[in-house]
Design a protein around this nucleic acid. Structure first.
Lengths: 231, 231
DNA sequence: GTCATCATGTAAGCCGTTACATGATTGC
DNA sequence: GCAATCATGTAACGGCTTACATGATGAC
């Protein structure tokens, strides 16, 4: 799971460990405060597995920028980078810059597609996949959403069994009811996403006459259509 | 966490391990499918710690009813119990019946009050406490709700920082937005609970210093009025 | 001169999981 | 006889946490 998140970040840009953590916290919000005791071993694992390659940054070259960091909430902005005098002294603790390899990209695609095998938190796992869903083929993306919807529908059934039959006190009952509502809310959201995906698929069907007759999920390295989200 | 849930169930009724699991699944919904590999060691721990006592059930006594269990989805119903010939033979694998001790009750009260120290899932931990909130003194209950509300409000702030500044693709953005909405929904729910608690407190203030109308659950637990160190 | 931030790592532990082992009872 | 349910347990592992170790840089 963490490996997947790391690969997802490195998919777009090379980074060193400390910054990976920052991005995980500030951008994704998942793994809100991943600990270094977890992060660095993960990076080592990925390197050993050949999914990422490492370069020791030796202080020379364009050092990616110590930010002024005003400390105020609004002052922090990604674009606000000030290039400092890089010549001063190259003595900061050597940073290890990680970049994803071809094998890593393949591994990422695999993880993106596979349903998580073990007792991993379903919700977190789905959220993570969705955050990187732009890398999925449209059909696979739709499948992801529908799989999640099915999971939630199942849980809704379990909730209904639960609320009937047992007489709970106000607190437990309020909890169960609220949980049910939250699940329904999630399902409604997924339904909106699903219908959006369906519309997109329909449109591309109409525009491109040569649609593949079925969706084998396009597995291998298809870096085809990335939306760089130009401002 | 699991220990707490177990104590909470045993607080009301003695039980054997297998049934604890069933209740956790069917009634509480938390620990949806706790594994035996987790449950039984937990019971051993609790016994070793003196929080529960064990009695080996030797096949005699009123055995709690093997259900017919039709197997179909709709046929299953909690009330559909058929009492079988209980006299047949008392040879089932000896069950260990657990009951909570006085020390266990004290431990439970402690766990109920304490904010969880380590990296435990905040949401699950709160849900669990709320499920047993009827055992809390009204002020402590209010404090629990307000603490949770503060946590969520904090997270909401983090979400707002997140959504501004970074330009995310539709999927990541939809995820962040939905997460924010869900948090707002949670907060609104907590606000309803909190104002309910405040009303209750007001009423019992206006009424008498002798017991409030206490209906169903006759629990022997709470003699303690601990002043909650509210934040 | 002390504190926060940047930067990387190791060690121990917690809390859960799956897989394995064992065995009786009931229903088809 | 075979499968499912009831019933208890052990062993290995997974994935994350905190605490510890180290050290440079810049701000007040």
């Amino acid at each position: 799971m963490l490996d997947f998140a790391i690969l997802g970040l490195l998919h777009e840009q090379e980074m060193h460990g400390y910054e990976i953590r920052r991005r995980l916290r500030d951008e994704l919000g998942l793994f809100a405060n991943i600990s270094f005791g977890s992060l660095y071993p993960a990076l080592s694992r990925l390197e050993k597995a050949g999914s990422v390659s490492v370069t020791e940054e030796t202080g020379s070259g364009p050092r990616p920028i110590p930010m002024p960091f005003t400390g105020s909430l609004s002052g922090e902005r990604a674009g606000l980078r000030v290039r400092m005098a890089a010549s001063s002294r190259g003595s900061r603790r050597a940073r290890k810059v990680y970049r994803i390899t071809e094998a890593g990209r393949r591994h990422f695609d695999q993880l993106l597609q596979a349903r998580d095998p073990n007792g991993a938190d379903e919700a977190r796992s789905f959220s993570l996949r969705l955050a990187f869903a732009r890398h999925l083929a449209p059909q696979a993306r739709l499948a992801l959403l529908e799989r999640r919807r099915a999971e939630l529908a199942e849980r809704l059934d379990a909730d209904q069994v639960r609320s009937s039959g047992h007489r709970l006190d106000i607190y437990a009952r309020s909890l169960v009811e609220h949980t049910t509502e939250a699940t329904e809310h999630d399902i409604a959201w997924l339904d909106r996403l699903i219908s959006y995906e369906r519309r997109q698929l329909d449109e591309s069907d109409r525009q491109i006459p040569s649609g593949p007759p079925d969706g084998g999920t396009s597995d291998s390295a298809g870096d085809d259509e990335r939306a760089p989200a130009s401002t």
